[in-house]
């Protein structure tokens, strides 16, 4: 009698139980082990797989698919002559490298399709565009055009300019997109504006369905003034910028008292506003000022329900 092979010869119910305990990456690897396992996995796709899949593109360098498995597993695709250099990394260490014929975007798309077929839902956790060099927009546009419509919960623009963000944003499915994160916003040089600090003009972006439908936004724009009206449609907002007018901070308070959507608003300012103006509007803080942290806190009753609005002012050295 031939000896039994672990897993392969297990009863279906047992096989399924083992598969349930595996991450997505391991299941995809298991498909390649033998015909029996591949057939079983394809006919009985594991149901409880909550592994997060993220895509990061670094124009001019590579595009990668990242999974937590439980270590960070990455598949990295780089253009290599007429082919594609493909790296398999575990916890950021390269485990294997191969070169395949064909355009790197084709190879990336093929692998992404294969992964998402077995993912518990066809939506990425995050799609990140990391722009470290200026003027490589063409490559990102080509990648996004080839993908067609990106289904992701979050999009991250790192080092991009506002014009680039406006051009890339329409590629993301607005029904799936919940979070927009803008990090290290690139300041485009304009001849007619010599100031180091300029107003953040979101005119091109805020008309998009993606901006209107998202619930969370996080923006890091240290060289900019920010107008708060651009962010009052979100549930959660985190802004880091150069400066904001006291009138805008008062507007946030008024919006919280009337909006059912706003939930959390955090602002980090490089140049702090005049506290006296805040006292004139808010009154003195509701709690005694902590002499060590200089933290101040106000409470306001929200007229429409029993919730209380809390505003904290925390100076940071």
């Amino acid at each position: 009698m031939p000896s039994q092979t672990l897993l392969v010869d297990f009863p279906a119910v047992v096989k399924s139980k083992v598969l349930e305990k595996l991450d997505l990456f391991s299941i995809l690897k298991l498909r390649k082990v033998c015909y029996n396992l591949r057939q079983f996995i394809d006919e009985n796709p594991p149901k409880f797989n909550s592994c997060a899949v993220e895509v990061t593109t670094t124009p001019g360098e590579c595009i990668s698919i990242n999974m937590k498995s439980p270590e960070i597993v990455s598949l990295v695709f780089r253009p290599d002559g007429n082919g594609c250099k493909m790296e398999w990394k575990v916890s950021y260490k390269v485990r294997k490298v191969v070169v395949e014929m064909g355009n790197y975007i084709d190879v990336f798309l093929r692998e992404l399709e294969g992964i998402m077929k077995y993912h518990w839902r066809p939506v990425l956790k995050s799609f990140s565009i990391q722009q470290f060099e200026w003027d490589v927009r063409r490559e990102v546009s080509e990648e996004l055009t080839r993908i067609g419509c990106v289904h992701t919960d979050e999009v991250v623009f790192d080092g991009c300019s506002l014009d680039q963000i406006a051009a890339f944003l329409p590629f993301f499915n607005s029904d799936d997109l919940n979070k927009i994160r803008i990090e290290d916003l690139f300041k485009q040089e304009k001849e007619d504006q010599e100031d180091d600090i300029r107003m953040l003009n979101l005119q091109k972006i805020k008309q998009s369905e993606q901006w209107k439908n998202s619930k969370h936004v996080k923006i890091e724009a240290w060289d900019f003034y920010v107008k708060i009206r651009d962010f009052l449609n979100f549930e959660q907002v985190e802004i880091k910028c150069e400066m904001m007018s006291v009138q805008d901070i008062i507007l946030i308070k008024e919006s919280f008292l009337t909006s059912s959507r706003l939930d959390d608003f955090s602002i980090g300012l490089e140049n702090y506003h005049d506290r006296e103006q805040l006292y004139a509007s808010f009154g003195f803080p509701s709690l005694p000022v902590d002499p060590e942290t200089q933290e101040e806190e106000w409470f306001f009753r929200i007229p429409t329900n029993e919730d209380v609005l809390s505003i904290r002012d925390v100076p940071v050295e």
């Binding site: 390649k32 598949l75 493909m86 398999w88 191969v98 190879v107 093929r110 692998e111 294969g114 992964i115």
Partner: peptide, 10 residues
Amino acid sequence: SEISLSPSPP
């Protein structure tokens, strides 16, 4: 290749 995860041929 061994790295590839895709279910369909290239």
